[in-house]
């Protein structure tokens, strides 16, 4: 779980922003409601997190609200990892 937020930020930047997209991206940037990630593209983020952190994110938890910021995504992953532990 080292630098969980940084890892997610890097993934979001690489996966969802175009090379010439210089929008600032922070832990609190709105990803879904801000139009950076759409509901279709969320699947790759979900799969990335599941593989990287060895957690299973139930569909009920993979809501647009839970995936709307890097901070909320990190909180979700930490909660699921704690349950698993």
């Amino acid at each position: 779980m080292d630098d969980l937020r940084g890892t997610i930020l890097d993934y979001v930047r690489k996966e969802y922003l175009e090379e010439d997209d210089d929008r600032p991206l922070t832990e609190t940037t709105r990803l879904i409601s801000g139009g950076i990630v759409d509901s279709f593209s969320m699947v790759s983020l979900k799969r990335f997190l599941e593989r990287k952190y060895d957690v299973k994110i139930p569909y009920a938890d993979a809501s647009p609200e839970a995936f709307d910021t890097v901070a909320s995504i990190a909180a979700l992953v930490e909660r699921l990892a704690a349950v698993r532990a």
Binding site: E18, D38, F40, S41, V43, S44
Partner: peptide, 13 residues
């Protein structure tokens, strides 16, 4: 795609 039960994903333009 939304009406379909298949998994969905996207690639950069």
């Amino acid at each position: 795609m939304r009406l379909c039960k298949a998994m969905t994903d996207t690639y950069k333009h």
